Amino acid sequence: MKQKQNSAYTAPALEKGLDILELLSERDTGLTQSEIARALGRSVGEIFRMLMVLQDRGYVSQDPLSDRYSLTTFIFEVAHRIPIVGRMTAIAGPAMRELSGKINQSAHLAILSEGAVLVVGQTTSPGNNVLSVRLGARIDLWRASSGRVILAFQPEKEVKRLMKDVPVPPGTSASQILDELSAIRAAGIEVRDSFVVKGVVNISAPIIDHSGLAIGALTVPHIERFDETITFEKCKAEVIVTAVRLSKSLGGQLPEIN
């Protein structure tokens, strides 16, 4: 859960509800009422009232067999009502499915959210061997090609602000990150080994809006198959074509790709 910051304003009931939502978002199998109370340091009575309201509003559901509470997809639907996210994902969905069909690779669409990378769109390869990133996943800002590509097309002052909020990884300096972002901006795309999976090469291109800034990134975590007939260069070219298409639909223009 996000660390609470000191504030001149408090709303205890609202904070309890948000604490529950954030806690459940981290637990794949859900939690019982007593487990939620224990994790949050609250009484069972407090948690019961909050859970009843959240359940009535459709944000959580209770498994009748295990009595565990889990988040529903409603919270994801609410997030997609944000105009820019909703518009981008609506446009990107068909384009990404077409892309995955052409290159036999999975693809995902990501945005920046609260100092992290949030996956808001995802398509899987039509083949038997699939590597994909979970829809709704939050990824370390500095260890994701999507985040780096988006930041490469942001004002430097915004990048430096994020560096204060989200420290760069150990062994990496701020100047090194800035140099790498500059190189990505010059190339117009990032092609690099995955930060987390050996043998995977990320192909990531920015989605540019009318302001000339990146509002998202389209990324293909490319896997190489022994019997693959589609070349890596073909995959890269198709990612660029799709990113250009999405940018134009939002009134933006991708820079020239080197």
Rank of each mutant, 00 (worst) to 15 (best):
K157P: 00
I20F: 03
S7G: 09
P169E: 04
V133I: 14
I240L: 05
E22H: 09
N202D: 04
S34W: 09
H222P: 01
V53A: 10
L178M: 08
Y69V: 02
S70D: 07
R143T: 12
F232H: 03
A243T: 01
A110S: 15
A144R: 01
H222S: 04
D227S: 10
T29C: 07
N6P: 05
E77Q: 14
P94N: 12
V44P: 04
D63I: 04
V239T: 05
I203A: 05
A187E: 11
G251W: 12
E46R: 07
L246C: 06
K4G: 08
H222F: 06
S247T: 06
S61L: 10
E114M: 09
R81D: 13
A217I: 02
V149P: 05
I257A: 00
I150E: 00
P167S: 15
K234I: 11
N6H: 10
E22P: 02
L18Y: 09
V220C: 00
A144H: 09
L112D: 00
P167V: 05
Q105H: 06
R138F: 10
V159A: 00
G212A: 09
L71A: 02
V220T: 01
F48E: 10
V60Q: 02
A205W: 01
Q154E: 13
R245A: 08
R87A: 03
T123N: 08
R87L: 14
E114D: 12
S132Y: 15
A187R: 05
L71R: 04
L213W: 08
I91M: 14
N258P: 12
L24Y: 00
T32I: 07
S70I: 11
I103K: 01
L246D: 02
G86E: 04
L109S: 06
L254D: 00
K248E: 12
G121Q: 03
V244A: 14
I203M: 06
G251C: 12
E180V: 15
A37G: 04
